[in-house]
Each structure stands twice: as C-alpha cells, then as structure tokens.
Amino acid sequence: MPLTLLAEQALNGLQLGLMLFLLAAGLTLVFGIMDMINLAHGTLYMIGAYLAATVAEASGSFVAAIAAAVVGTAVIGMALELTVLRPLYRRSHLHQVLATFALILIANELVRIIWGAQPIALNMPAALSGPVELAPGLRYPAYRLVVIGVGLAAALLLYVVVVHTRVGMWLRAGASDREMASAMGVNTAWLFTAAFGAGAALCAVAGALLGPLLAVQVGMGENILILAFVVIVIGGIGSVRGALVGALLVGILDTVGRTALPALFRALASPEVASEAGPALASMLIYVLMAGVLCFRPRGLFPARG
C-alpha cells in the first residue's frame, strides 16, 4: 500500500477516533458516575446533526449551525435527564436499557415526523470543501482537517476541565467511586444534570461535524452508539483517559483495517477470497479487539473503579 494512502487513512482514523471520543467521554462519565446505561446517547448525536442541518439551511452559516446544535442538544439532554432518566438511576441496568431503548424508538419516530424519513443534507462550508496539500503527493480535504482540529481542541478542553478544575475533580471522584459521589457533599443532582448537558453538547459537536461526511438520517445514532460503547468498554468504564485511548484505537483500527485488510488478502489469496473475507474481517476487527481486551483485562484497559 502506498505510503500516502496509509497516511490519509491514518488521518481519517484519527478523525473518526476523535469524534468517537466526543461521544464516548459523555457516555463513560454518565456510566461511571450515575451507573446508568444510556442507549439514547446516540440519539443526542442524531438530534445534534438534525438541528445543525436545519439551522445551516435557514441561516447559511455553519458556525451558527454548530452553536445552535450544541445549545439545543444540551437543553434537550438536560430536560431528558430531569424528566425521564433521573428516576432510573437507582433502577437495575435492565430497566435502564429498556427505558432508553424506548427513548430511541420515540426519538427516531419524532424525527421522522418532523424531518421525514429521507436523509437530509448538511453541507460543509464552501471555503473548506477543497483539499490541502499536506506533503508532496498527500492532498487531504480541508474540512476533515478542521474536524480533526476541532476534535483535538474539544478533547483538550475536556481534559483540562476533568483534570484541572474542581468540577472535574468531583466528576473523577464520582466516576471512580460512586459512594464517594453521593458523600461528596456537593449538590450532586445539579452536577449530574450539568454533566449530562455537557455530554449532550459533545454529542452535538460530533453530530454536526460528521453530518457533512456521513448521511444525516434516522438510525445514525444507533450505529455510532455501538462504536462508542465498544470504545468505553475497551478503555474501562468511567475512565476518560480510557475513552480517549479506546476511541483512537477503534477509530484507527477500523479505518485502516478497511483499506489494509482487503489489500492484504489480495496479496495473499485469490481475488474472490479477498472481496469476500476482506470487508467482513475489517468490519469485525474492532469487535475482535474488544473481545481480546476483555479476555485478558475483563474490566478494560484503564479500570476506573477499584
């Protein structure tokens, strides 16, 4: 495989990984602090993408679209937390799965009613639609570079908040020890709502940024939700650092695998085998990775709870 192609794939992988991290960070904190399985996390991502597409269409400004998506989704997320999710914290995981599965069904149907069943368009800003020459022979789409940049900035911001602020300290304490979270003496109810809103906002960032690259459609949330879960399980539930490592592993493995494996099979076996086994094995890679990690480290790479 040519080196430029590999570099391009690595950048694509980095981009997917960073977007996955934006989703996984919220998911892992909610999971760690509130011990809550939230299947509807991907739904917030979908809502963010739809809000962004609508505002972009109306205003013509991509920046306004992202800002509106972030605010709108955060508000919706906090409203959900206050009404539906809060009564579920003390329930079993089974009930949380069932209730948030129901939320997915409801949200998908509402989106269909409001926006219709067909995918809708979210166009990238015209200024960013061209490629940039990163190195001789390596041209890479400008928009994807911006996505990587925003992803890095968001990840850095999150890191600073979680590691260097008082709120972040509460969050980490809560994620590593739930008893502690309730005994912290801070207003945990407020903290939970705020954390949930922040998680929703991160979902919206990812949804709005990925919208122009993937289709904005009903069901987009579920596909990425599964990936985000794979990420936090690999990283260790409750660990933000684990989510980052897991997200980058999954993003890069998945992206590079989809190009490299079929090529590898073409080199080693017949074209039929390559076209059949290549894509299948590539789709499977991240699950193989997760099963492998859990085999040897049943609590993920960075177990947060002692």
Binding site: H93, V230, V233, A280, L281, M284, A291, L294, C295, P298
Partner: peptide, 26 residues
C-alpha cells in the same frame, strides 16, 4: 469470564462478529 456491563458488551461483540460473517459469506 466477565461480569455485569462487560458481559453485556462482550456478548454483543460476538453477535456482531457472527453478523459480519453471515453478511460476507457468499
């Protein structure tokens, strides 16, 4: 060998692998 949420996720992972095997076998 795993427990709790990790069990939920690893069973999901294996099912996904089975899904992709079936999709890819002509």
């Amino acid at each position: 060998r795993t427990r709790g949420v990790y069990f939920i996720m690893i069973t999901l992972a294996f099912a996904q692998m089975a899904y992709y095997v079936v999709v890819s076998l002509r």
